[in-house]
């Protein structure tokens, strides 16, 4: 059963994901006003989605470290790995976003609300890693870095209220608008959602791999300490 599910996993990543990329680049029609550059949508949105998911995953493990006594060491590297993937995907989001912004709005950076919130997310990740590395010799590293991540996480909802009041938005309101519908053609919508789906599976795959590596390193370290 286990190898069977793993086979499906590999099939999704190594066969379906390139298929979705091809579909995004070739078969999906380009958007009316934006032209061919609109195809970056199928990479930009999933990458941004992953950076938020990683933040939530890291936050979840941080909360669990504090409230439950089980698997604390495992949760520590799980939170760290999620943040690690998160910062890479946040940088990818900023890069793909600013390329697209240059093409469609004329400059690489505009301080649009969503650009601002992704920069704040990046700042939080950077502070988390600075703190984590500064706590290297502290026995309480896992508790302290978890508390920081939790405080950062409860700050995020406040940005949702604050930022739109300060910066006017340039982003199309495809997700948040009055009639609560996504204004995209059916073919584009399908490509976008399959792309988000395969990216999420890809995220799960690298996250699992990183956790396996960390768990091996952890047991190796423990054995070394025992000797």
């Amino acid at each position: 059963m286990k190898s069977y599910s793993r086979l499906i996993f590999y099939f999704l990543i190594f066969a379906v994901m390139p298929g979705v990329f091809l579909r995004a680049l070739i078969w999906t029609p380009a958007a009316e006003f934006l032209g061919e550059s609109s195809r970056i949508l199928y990479f930009h949105v999933p990458v941004a989605w992953i950076s938020v998911i990683s933040f939530v995953t890291a936050g979840y493990h941080s909360i669990m470290i504090l409230i439950s006594e089980k698997e604390r060491d495992e949760r520590e590297y799980k939170a760290y790995n999620a943040a690690y993937i998160g910062i890479i995907f946040t940088i990818l989001t900023v890069v793909t976003g600013s390329i697209w912004a240059k093409i469609s709005w004329g400059s690489y950076w505009n301080w649009d609300p969503r650009e601002t919130s992704i920069v704040i997310l990046m700042l939080i990740y950077i502070s988390y890693f600075s703190l984590y590395s500064a706590l290297k010799d502290n026995v309480n590293r896992m508790g302290i870095s978890s508390v920081y991540l939790i405080i950062a996480m409860i700050t995020m909802p406040f940005f949702v209220f604050i930022i739109p009041r300060i910066y006017p938005s340039l982003h199309p309101d495809t997700i948040i608008n009055a009639d609560k519908k996504i204004h995209l053609e059916a073919a584009m919508k399908l490509t976008l959602f399959t792309s988000i789906g395969v990216f999420t599976i890809f995220y799960g795959y690298i996250y699992k791999l990183m956790n396996r590596i960390s768990s091996l390193e952890f047991t190796q370290q423990e054995k070394r300490n025992d000797n």
């Binding site: 704040i120 502070s127 600075s130 950062a152 700050t155």
Partner: peptide
Amino acid sequence: VISFPILLP
């Protein structure tokens, strides 16, 4: 470094 993102709002 750690205060800035949380103090921004």
